[in-house]
Nucleic acid binder design. Structure first.
Length: 511
RNA sequence: GACCCCAUCGUCUAGUCCGGUCUAGGACGCUAGCUUUUCACGCUAGAAACGGGGGUUCGAAUCCCCCUGGGGUCGCCA
């Protein structure tokens, strides 16, 4: 697979990091020249510029997050620029909350973008101007067909078993035939013969006959640009070199390609990555399991784990499974992206999350876990408690898949006395067991050192003098200390809780 | 319906481009055993896939065709 991107002419693009970051500086608009400038920049290859262009009508869902990740990885791998563009052309369906959620989600995942956020709606005038130019050049035309007429047309086509597409009724008709002042849309006069070939970086060579494509709407009857026009103009103006996006845009690419050609612009490279499906194999949509990334955060997943999981979903590199962000940047390539859709599997995400909790950066895990503990406790963790959490982390994470599991397994650390043993613990804390506890307490009180090893020896010796096996006193100690029947080893728990608290909890249950 | 895309264990994938080293590898999950103060972790072992049919070839998971199955798109949404 060769990279024809290297020979693509680039647009003259002001390095945005050199301009003052004013409110308007990220609006290239008509200041962008269309001059091909390859000769003056021969020594450096055209830089890679990618973009993630979500529509702010929902939240950053998992599929979008992966698209962003792949763009980010590809860009960082090539040392290029990764831009964030909010496709808010449809103002009615856009919301500030959605924009905030997208930005929060990307930030949480550690996907940083270059330059300021670009808002597509800020370019409407530019888009309309491009359409006007096309109209003037005869490459676009006015279509006076009403929505009702088009609806009828489609129904007729469907009834006749014909392909559904605009029939070109105004393509060659004299605009003067339309009623005076009638509303119209502007459509692209797309080629009707021949074929269009897109050498997709993931899907390979894809060919579509031009007679399959109809004349798409560029400008709505209210004069606003459609998505199809906006993306092409913005991608061009922003100097985007590689468009990496969901598979669902593959057919759009052919229409957009026609627009590029009409405009005389070189099209960027395309890479259409497969969509993510739910565990049942059905498409992951907003109403079917497609959660926003914040939902994964709330479920207790670490960003590093989710990122690693998303990376491996649809991309592979030999047997590599655990891949750090740095390694991913080094290894990532579009060639490694699979062509088929992948199903989302929580079990594997769990496994990855467990790995990162156990072997990742402890400080990051503690920071991520703290809010979960605080929510559970209803109060903030103080410095000592945070430190306690950090020392307990290795023990706790061995028993957890998510940060939530950390809370359910480590809640005893911050529980307030007297601890209420749960049902199972109560069964273990028989009168007999409580008496044993009473005899154990003085033995522990006498200890000079209070660490797991010393405690282990002391309790072992106690068991021996009592003529008991460790297994018959352990559960009671655990029940008294944690209020439950599952926890890290009791010696470790004793050490974690400290002498004062441990003894107090044991006395609470002893009789 | 039309057009386009895809197809290896239950799931994610390696291998496919450059046919033989594939009695198809890894990971998650699953099963069994070991370890063990509980729960886990860990370790060991195991079950588990080239959708079907035709070709091409000495030889095909790998190349070609058809079928089947999945998916996407067909808006004055993005």
């Amino acid at each position: 697979m060769n990279c024809n991107c290297l020979s693509r002419p680039t647009v003259l693009h002001t390095p945005s990091n050199l301009t003052a970051p004013t409110r308007a500086s990220h609006l290239p608009g008509r200041s962008v020249s269309e001059t091909n400038h390859k000769s003056t920049m021969t020594k450096s290859l055209p830089p890679v510029v990618t973009r993630f262009a979500p529509s702010p009508s929902g939240f950053l869902h998992i599929g979008g997050a992966r698209t962003a990740l792949f763009n980010w990885l590809f860009t960082r791998h090539h040392g290029g620029q990764f831009r964030l563009r909010i496709e808010d052309t449809d103002r009615a369906r856009s919301s500030d909350e959605a924009i905030a959620a997208i930005i929060d989600g990307l930030t949480w995942l550690g996907l940083d973008w270059d330059d300021e956020v670009f808002y597509q709606s800020s370019q409407q005038a530019r888009h309309a101007e491009v359409a006007a130019d096309l109209l003037a050049a005869g490459k676009a035309y006015k279509c006076f067909a009403t929505p009702e007429q088009l609806k009828d047309m489609r129904e007729a086509q469907k009834a006749a078993g014909q392909p559904i597409r605009y029939d070109g009724r105004w393509r060659d008709r004299d605009p003067d035939e339309a009623p005076q002042g009638a509303p119209f849309v502007v459509r692209l006069r797309a080629p009707q013969n021949g074929q269009t070939v897109i050498d997709d970086k993931v899907q390979g060579k894809v060919v579509v006959k031009n007679d399959q494509l109809d004349d798409m709407v560029l400008l709505r009857s209210d004069g606003t640009p459609t998505y199809m026009l906006s993306v092409v103009v913005d991608d061009h103006d922003m100097g985007i070199t590689h468009i990496i996006r969901g598979d669902d845009h593959l057919s759009n690419a052919f229409r957009q390609r026609a627009l590029y050609d009409a405009l005389g612009w070189a099209a960027p490279s395309f890479a259409h990555i497969p969509l993510i499906h739910g565990a049942d194999g059905a498409k992951l949509s907003k109403r079917h399991g497609a959660l926003g990334v914040e939902a994964y955060r709330e479920m207790g997943y670490l960003p590093a784990a989710l990122r690693n999981y998303l990376l491996r979903l649809g991309w592979g590199h030999g047997d590599a499974e655990i891949i750090s962000a740095d390694e991913a940047v080094k290894l990532f390539s579009l060639e490694g992206v699979g062509k088929g859709p992948a199903r989302f599997d929580f079990k594997k995400l769990d496994a990855l999350n467990a790995h990162y909790m156990r072997h990742g950066d402890p400080a990051a895990t503690v920071s991520a876990a703290a809010p979960f503990f605080e929510t559970k406790l209803g109060r903030p963790l103080d410095g000592d408690q945070r430190a306690l959490l950090e020392t307990a982390l290795p023990l706790l994470s061995e028993r957890a898949k998510t940060l939530r599991d950390l809370v359910s397994g480590g809640g005893f650390l911050f529980a307030e006395r007297p601890i209420e043993p749960d049902e199972k613990a109560q069964e273990v804390l028989t009168d007999e067991a409580r008496k044993i506890l009473a005899r154990l307490v003085p033995q522990l009180e006498a200890l000079e050192r209070w660490d797991a090893e010393t405690l282990g020896q002391a309790i072992g010796a106690f068991a021996e003098t009592e003529g008991l096996k460790l297994g018959s006193i352990g559960p009671a100690v655990r029940g008294a200390l944690t209020g439950g029947t599952a926890s890290p080893g009791i010696f470790e728990v004793l050490a974690l809780l400290g002498r004062t608290e441990s003894l107090a909890r044991l006395r609470d249950q002893a009789i």
